[in-house]
Nucleic acid binder design. Sequence first.
DNA 1: CTGAAAGCGCTAACAT
DNA 2: ATGTTAGCGCTTTCAG
Lengths: 330, 330
Amino acid sequence: MMDVARRAGVSSSTVSLYLRKPDAVSPAASQEIAQAIEDLGYVPNLVAGGLAAAGSRVVSVIVPSIRNAFFAETVASLQTELAADGLQVMLGHSEYSEHDEEALIRTALAWAPAAVVLTGLNHSKAARKLLAGGGVPVIEMWELGGQAPIDMAVGFSHAAVGATAARHFAQQGFTSLAFLGARLSQDRRAAARAEGFVAEALRLGLPEPQILNHPAPATAEAGAQLLGLAQASPSEFQAVACSNDLIALGVLFECQRRGVAVPGDLAVMGFGDLSFSSTSNPPLTTIRPSGDLIGREVARLIKACVHGAHPSETARIVDTGHLLVERKSG
Amino acid sequence: MMDVARRAGVSSSTVSLYLRKPDAVSPAASQEIAQAIEDLGYVPNLVAGGLAAAGSRVVSVIVPSIRNAFFAETVASLQTELAADGLQVMLGHSEYSEHDEEALIRTALAWAPAAVVLTGLNHSKAARKLLAGGGVPVIEMWELGGQAPIDMAVGFSHAAVGATAARHFAQQGFTSLAFLGARLSQDRRAAARAEGFVAEALRLGLPEPQILNHPAPATAEAGAQLLGLAQASPSEFQAVACSNDLIALGVLFECQRRGVAVPGDLAVMGFGDLSFSSTSNPPLTTIRPSGDLIGREVARLIKACVHGAHPSETARIVDTGHLLVERKSG
DNA sequence: CTGAAAGCGCTAACAT
DNA sequence: ATGTTAGCGCTTTCAG
């Protein structure tokens, strides 16, 4: 930066000013500086900038799994939005472990980030303390309800999603229901959908739906196996809600193999509205959570914080809701 | 850090030393320092550390799309490996735009990263200059062949993948082939697979395969439409290679709707070996590129660089190859 | 509108 | 094994 200043015949503070508020520098000086930057191929050092300004332009994002299409979508839209404001995304994934998450949060904080974005409302006690103490804005995403957020939250109620699924089946007159999920003990949001499903069915006076849980990650393979289990059970089900479209896809595949007609013999519902869901056989009825909307809303909140305008109490929780997408599978 | 030092009754440099090389500090002092850190809830400032040490513990990773399962897998394994060494991943996605990529590289460099990881071998001229100039290790991944890497590379030849597909079909006696791809003008690696497919077919004396290209991103929907196009064409095909398992899935769906038997009437091959490919109807024959292996190898190279051991010339390019996974679709 | 000066919190010789 | 001393490259008052 000194080199640039020298070459442009100004002081380094003028260059610094030019870089942040170009309008505050005279046109003549701007010319010279721009030229010098160009000639020297100067790239500002954001590390030094972050130190001097006591706060870097980094946003730490911690998700359970980046392989998961839901979070990938959110991270993508978040990154796009933040990049437009010169904010960088630092990514970590906890593999659904609270312990790993805590370690990630610790490192994240060490970067004096502009904000930290977490997935879900459940974190270790130590993590909550770390976050509550530091003056860093924290946004929890992809979950609402249950407990109060640390600071801000963007998401929706998973119990409500489960309830929507139950109501949809009840309206069609189904009475024998099941919920098919994977890793329900680790994925608390999926578990909340299952609970919401069961609770709503009960409230509507239906027999208690069964929850079938697969120990492996949510894949089509797991879905296929889950369907096998469901069919093997003494009381066959009329309708199954899956915790994820990938599981629903596996169910569809396995139904085809076994010759069970969907939705004739069995109604199937997914969650996520993934890219293949509209074109499967039959097209999948599912619930869309809008991962990219979540990303955009999180970005909006972060930008507000960065610009000094701390959102009011009322604006600190945004519910992105969910949408039932009725197609042919149930 | 000064506070910790004071509380522990030592100097700040001892604390710093303790944090980086705990063995170099006396047990007594270590005790005191650990206690002080605990009491104060001290979190070191990595920004300051990065500035002082002239090189931060950040690795910048730039992929075309984080929504893409291939890159998501690589980023996931890379992040896991790097986190074990205290390295942070900064993520950017270019949406297949060389221009956006250049901007991302510029920002990445501004963080004085320990390494930058790029996808593919094609970058803008300015980007290449930026990278070649700075003393930062750069690793290009997911592609080999065509042109020389800037610095290091981990990946495989996409032309070879296409050739493998062509050979596989040729061995089964098919003569009328097609390649189904999406956004081939943007996704140069997919285009390379298509070219490799055509070239190998020609080399084997088969009629020139047709390339069908869909303008939208690679999804099952696009695959279904592509199959429609393929069937509509005057010469029906005996076998189609898809640039991606998602496209192949769409093809499978559409075949089912149209009553074309797979592989009886049409052989279908994918690329990627995604999670649903083993359980579709029929299970998909595909080519597996090993996204997580790429991530691990990239991490290995980066760690070597960080530890000062710059890999020798011979070890700067690692070919992760590809694997034909023969299932039932063709 | 521009420049001088004082750090931001830490690391890395070097000296002890 | 520990303390001392200089910065790292930039931002930010505060004068001019």
